[in-house]
Nucleic acid binder design. Sequence first.
DNA 1: TTGTAAGCGTTATCAA
DNA 2: TTGATAACGCTTACAA
Lengths: 345, 345
Amino acid sequence: MSVTINDVARLSGVSKRTVSRVINRSPAVGEATREKVLKIIAEVNFSPDKQARGLASSRSYLLGLIYDNPDALYIDEVQRGALSVCSALGYELVVHPCHSKSPDFIDDCLSFIARSKLDGVIILPPVSENKALAAAIRAANCAYVRLASVDLDDHDNIVVSDEREAMKEMADHLVELGHTDIGFISGPRRYRSSMERMEGFLAELELCKVTLPPERIIEGKNSYESGIECAHQLLGSVDSANSSMKKRPTAIVANNDEMAAGVLRVASDLAIKVPEELSVAGFDDNILASRIIPSLTTIKRPVSNMARLAVQKLINKSQSAESEKITLEELIKPHLVKRESTDKK
Amino acid sequence: MSVTINDVARLSGVSKRTVSRVINRSPAVGEATREKVLKIIAEVNFSPDKQARGLASSRSYLLGLIYDNPDALYIDEVQRGALSVCSALGYELVVHPCHSKSPDFIDDCLSFIARSKLDGVIILPPVSENKALAAAIRAANCAYVRLASVDLDDHDNIVVSDEREAMKEMADHLVELGHTDIGFISGPRRYRSSMERMEGFLAELELCKVTLPPERIIEGKNSYESGIECAHQLLGSVDSANSSMKKRPTAIVANNDEMAAGVLRVASDLAIKVPEELSVAGFDDNILASRIIPSLTTIKRPVSNMARLAVQKLINKSQSAESEKITLEELIKPHLVKRESTDKK
DNA sequence: TTGTAAGCGTTATCAA
DNA sequence: TTGATAACGCTTACAA
């Protein structure tokens, strides 16, 4: 059917083994021989069979993507970023959404890896924070890189974005606008990323002499619905009679855009004008953020670059210029995006 | 290292060949033998090596997903839907976003298929409408299924959703609300799906004795920005002095939610109240649709089910109950979702 | 119904 | 620097 290494060997008058050496860039091949073989390879348009190669060398040229994150926008950006590096290097990307709450999810991921003998996997947050999963994958002798907001693994196994720092920007932004009474809707406290964002935000506020009382800080679940609930608590729900008498915060920051969208919804329902009477901000720079009215001040992470870096680490080709790696490291910093939803107090 | 077919053969006292038969559900195996082998397989937790299997049978157990659609929500839903079927059947999903405008994109797709010897690919709209691509893939002897809104291939190679019919629902909805002066922002006319939606909508309006003059029908590009432009044309832009004197449509329907979001933005900028002064509707039931204020009346396609059906067709296991196939066919109809953005004229 | 032996297209061992 | 030859783990003619 298609042309094999045998054809190339025959045509170029050398042994199979030598062709293999050429393919794999072995230095132990005479210059003349190499060129002769390469010429034939080009002529007949030979490309080695991945399966056969894998069977013999126990590699698959397949990379996996493991995630429990429901944010489609985020996933899509990661996939495209990862692919831009991987397919250039002859690797393919296999996707695996998983259920981190399911009791056998670790086995499920291991099976995913084993089934296709993946050469490596990228693990996205929040499941990337799962210590047991990382340990299991390492034990299974599979390469992995986690994307995370905290430095919780060896440098080779992680790509971290400094979300804490980004939230400081957010705090400064609001303080500059004159806000001192701010509500904060955190993500689930069991996630390190939630804590990073919250701590970064609160610490910077402290530095600016702004302290939030406990009732201004609420734990949300990162969902739109949860954002609505928390907003009601912060803004005073309709049904509690005297709640509207209480002083409201002049700004609310949420752990992500979905919850911030929930806040906007509640503000709209309660006829609270944003940003005139209330500033609102999120995190992610979801597609929502730019489309919603008013458009949302938020934090943008360079997700695509994080994914590229992850693949680079995984494939660990020191061949692919050191310089680019360094560049990418620089391109990983999240940053504030100012839009309509925040304004002067 | 790991357990192979030879181990199983030795342990169960039969030949390799017989184990292979058991694995592949060959009927030509004695009941007693089969059970004995299955028992051992379970005991030693054997699972056949995909690469070896593929090398021998020239299959890869890999399915590809080809798309040029930028809608991350849609892609994500397709992926999850497809995976729910494929991984249950021992297949993996490899993703391939492509650039259908690039001149060598067909070669790129063919190379993607060849590189990993994919057993089949699912092609998503709009590139699924590309005749040349489908022809090339067929010529390459690779199985494929296209998702589309029009019946433009053999029944085995396509999963169609009746978007024309769904838009009739939309038309009826608006007519019921009393709208007779309606603006329509179509998608690019070169896409069949755009034409289907538009024609379905207009035809049903005709049946209801509502006719739209040509200036009420504008071709958009499916993007948010394009939605904004078209909305300005329909609603009268700020800069044209007497435009606000002209009569405005009382409703605007867009080819997708992104453009409908653009319409909402313009309405907001022009202080036109939705839905009081203007009804707006989209298509897709994007995440935007439920989050935006006012929430958007739109059409929801059962994307996940379409993807599942596509995989089923691809793997073409008549073993997997006929009954379920039929069920899925039924579950593929798009339908209207009424929300806040449309109301009585 | 079961088994033998020959591949599938590579890489790896070892010798020349 | 090169080349026979044996894996790699499975499927598939062909027999029995």
